Amino acid sequence: LIVDEAINEDNSVVSLSQPKMDELQLFRGDTVLLKGKKRREAVCIVLSDDTCSDEKIRMNRVVRNNLRVRLGDVISIQPCP
């Protein structure tokens, strides 16, 4: 998924579009594992966002710094076991 700027300022939340959440079989409030660069990982709570496009994930600056990614970078997402 492509990293995009978050609207809310919550450090533990990322936003996906509802069709993408359905495709990944995620529900609102699920915890997910995000994988960024240099084997960096972060655990976040996923919320749906109608304004977010299907191929993007919204996260704020703190999460991006933790993953060592910038806007427009590609990250992977998976549900936490």
Score class of each variant (00 low, 15 high):
residue 75 I to D: 01
residue 61 R to F: 06
residue 49 D to K: 02
residue 25 Q to H: 06
residue 8 N to R: 08
residue 57 I to Q: 01
residue 6 A to Y: 03
residue 5 E to L: 07
residue 29 G to V: 02
residue 78 Q to F: 03
residue 46 V to W: 01
residue 31 T to K: 15
residue 57 I to M: 05
residue 72 G to E: 04
residue 48 S to V: 12
residue 67 L to I: 09
residue 24 L to Y: 05
residue 80 C to T: 10
residue 3 V to G: 01
residue 30 D to H: 07
residue 80 C to M: 14
residue 34 L to Q: 02
residue 47 L to G: 13
residue 47 L to Q: 11
residue 77 I to K: 00
residue 36 G to H: 09
residue 22 D to M: 09
residue 62 V to K: 12
residue 6 A to C: 09
residue 53 S to K: 11
residue 68 R to S: 15
residue 38 K to C: 05
residue 77 I to W: 01
residue 81 P to H: 04
residue 36 G to N: 14
residue 9 E to Y: 06
residue 21 M to L: 14
residue 14 V to P: 00
residue 81 P to N: 15
residue 78 Q to C: 07
residue 70 R to N: 07
residue 28 R to P: 12
residue 69 V to W: 00
residue 53 S to C: 10
residue 33 L to P: 00
residue 41 E to D: 07
residue 16 L to T: 01
residue 58 R to C: 04
residue 8 N to C: 11
residue 44 C to S: 10
residue 53 S to W: 05
residue 4 D to A: 12
residue 24 L to F: 03
residue 55 E to D: 05
residue 70 R to D: 08
residue 14 V to L: 01
residue 73 D to I: 02
residue 50 D to N: 07
residue 28 R to N: 15
residue 67 L to Q: 00
residue 10 D to V: 06
residue 28 R to Q: 12
residue 79 P to S: 11
residue 25 Q to W: 04
residue 40 R to Y: 15
residue 66 N to Q: 12
residue 77 I to F: 04
residue 22 D to Q: 13
residue 4 D to V: 08
residue 63 V to R: 03
residue 17 S to W: 01
residue 39 R to M: 06
residue 66 N to P: 00
residue 81 P to S: 07
residue 43 V to G: 04
residue 80 C to Q: 15
residue 24 L to C: 02
residue 24 L to Q: 02
residue 2 I to K: 12
residue 70 R to I: 04
residue 40 R to P: 07
residue 12 S to M: 15
residue 21 M to W: 01
residue 4 D to C: 15
residue 9 E to K: 05
residue 46 V to D: 01
residue 6 A to V: 06
residue 34 L to D: 02
residue 3 V to C: 05
residue 9 E to S: 14
residue 80 C to N: 15
residue 7 I to F: 13
residue 44 C to I: 05
residue 43 V to E: 14
residue 12 S to H: 08
residue 57 I to L: 05
residue 13 V to L: 08
residue 69 V to G: 01
residue 15 S to A: 11
residue 30 D to T: 09
residue 77 I to S: 00
residue 66 N to W: 04
residue 76 S to E: 08
residue 28 R to C: 14
residue 45 I to G: 09
residue 17 S to M: 00
residue 47 L to N: 13
residue 26 L to W: 03
residue 39 R to S: 13
residue 39 R to Y: 06
residue 60 N to Q: 04
residue 59 M to R: 00
residue 11 N to P: 12
residue 75 I to G: 00
residue 33 L to R: 09
residue 3 V to T: 03
residue 44 C to P: 00
residue 16 L to C: 08
residue 17 S to P: 03
residue 31 T to R: 14
residue 48 S to Q: 07
residue 33 L to A: 09
residue 17 S to T: 06
residue 38 K to L: 13
residue 27 F to I: 10
residue 28 R to T: 14
residue 19 P to I: 15
residue 74 V to R: 14
residue 74 V to D: 11
residue 68 R to E: 14
residue 22 D to R: 11
residue 68 R to F: 06
residue 78 Q to W: 11
residue 67 L to V: 03
residue 37 K to T: 09
residue 61 R to W: 07
residue 68 R to K: 15
residue 8 N to S: 10
residue 75 I to N: 01
residue 35 K to N: 13
residue 72 G to P: 00
residue 25 Q to R: 08
residue 5 E to W: 09
residue 8 N to M: 08
residue 66 N to Y: 05
residue 28 R to F: 03
residue 80 C to W: 04
residue 46 V to R: 00
residue 8 N to A: 09
residue 2 I to N: 09
residue 67 L to G: 00
residue 56 K to Y: 11
residue 23 E to F: 04
residue 55 E to W: 06
residue 5 E to K: 12
residue 37 K to Y: 12
residue 44 C to T: 09
residue 2 I to H: 04
residue 68 R to M: 13
residue 38 K to E: 08
residue 56 K to E: 08
residue 30 D to Y: 01
residue 74 V to Y: 09
residue 80 C to P: 10
residue 36 G to R: 03
residue 43 V to M: 15
residue 55 E to I: 15
residue 13 V to Q: 07
residue 56 K to V: 11
residue 80 C to I: 14
residue 20 K to Y: 02
residue 55 E to F: 09
residue 2 I to D: 01
residue 4 D to Q: 05
residue 78 Q to H: 11
residue 27 F to S: 15
residue 20 K to H: 03
residue 73 D to H: 06
residue 23 E to H: 05
residue 37 K to F: 07
residue 7 I to Y: 04
residue 63 V to C: 13
residue 34 L to K: 01
residue 46 V to P: 03
residue 33 L to Y: 15
residue 12 S to P: 06
residue 73 D to T: 04
residue 39 R to W: 08
residue 10 D to M: 09
residue 48 S to F: 03
residue 53 S to P: 06
residue 52 C to Y: 03
residue 79 P to K: 15
residue 33 L to I: 04
residue 78 Q to S: 10
residue 26 L to D: 01
residue 50 D to R: 09
residue 49 D to V: 03
residue 8 N to L: 11
residue 37 K to N: 06
residue 71 L to C: 07
residue 15 S to I: 12
residue 41 E to F: 02
residue 44 C to R: 07
residue 37 K to C: 05
residue 12 S to Y: 07
residue 12 S to Q: 15
residue 61 R to Y: 09
residue 46 V to Y: 00
residue 53 S to G: 11
residue 73 D to P: 00
residue 10 D to H: 15
residue 13 V to A: 07
residue 44 C to H: 03
residue 70 R to S: 14
